[in-house]
Design a protein around this nucleic acid. Sequence first.
DNA 1: AAGCCGGGGCC
DNA 2: GGCCCAGGCTT
Length: 349
Amino acid sequence: MSFSGKILDWYHINKRSLPWRKTTDPYKIWLSEIILQQTRVAQGTPYYLSFVDNFPSVHDLANANEEQVLKLWQGLGYYSRARNLHAAAKMVVNEYGGVFPDNYKKLLTLKGVGDYTASAISSICFNEPQAVVDGNVYRVLARYYGIDIPINSTEGIKYFKALAEKVMDPVEIRDYNQGIMEFGAIQCSPKKPLCLLCPLNDSCVGLEKGLVDQLPFKLKKTKVRNRYFNYLIPIYKDMDGAQFTSLKQRKGKGIWQNLWEFPLLESKEILEIDDITIRYKEALGDMESVELLEYNDNAIVHKLSHQHLHTKFWIVNTENDFDGKISIKKLTEFPVPVLIADFIKAFKF
DNA sequence: AAGCCGGGGCC
DNA sequence: GGCCCAGGCTT
């Protein structure tokens, strides 16, 4: 039997019951695909259910505020996905008359939809013969055909896309695409693949050559950058005893774009209390009637894939009213990075 | 072509 | 501590 035939047979026996497998509605399939980019099924599933619940149609999503979308996305990471998701929903409504694009080429025009996602949606929803190439497919093909071209090189990307197209089943593409990805997730897994029980173990080049645990081959990743974050948490009580603090929205290029955080002093090294006092005066003004308290002695190291954020929080009790203060009661309404959410949860305001 | 963009789970 | 995850965008 052919490679694709065995994948299809395996899939029909072993496929998991997942929420997005109960529909071919392109809106829902698109939601699931964006959420699952670089994200495990276990982590993405509750977010998928939440988005479908809060935004049953593409119109609901398009009509939402970006703030609401980011809040629902909070904790999932790669927040450009959420911003692009919202922008794409508006594109569907405004440029496609509210009808989701029904082919690969049109899907590619949507923000946040690249080759993989356009192939996935067009094949799953419309059975269009487009081969998906995600992390699972790279692994399955690299092992089965014994290919050691780096999957994160220009040559590798082209090679594996062409190979995927060559070995796909264009007629049953809907199940074949989902099948090879599911096969990579369950059977041909990154660690400890189940080769002994694999339906392809009599013809797998990687297995025959003992290269399974070395494939797929990948070029070394970039190294981690250390950054030093000092968050100032102003706390102000009005005459009624209500508490207020301050959040700023991150703008510009880098991490956490459009999310909110406490006033931040970034430095070359972790700052001590004297430094904070000086920088506070420079940034926020008078220190009169201000009490500065160190929240955490040792810096909290928040790890992103490419940055380590060495973070200290400083409590600033102040008797001075300030502009733009927000009520503590509304603190949890803002979309914030996990680093900030964890602090808000742990700190007793 | 290379960098950037999160957070979590597993080893 | 390193790797990987139903990748895409920017430079």
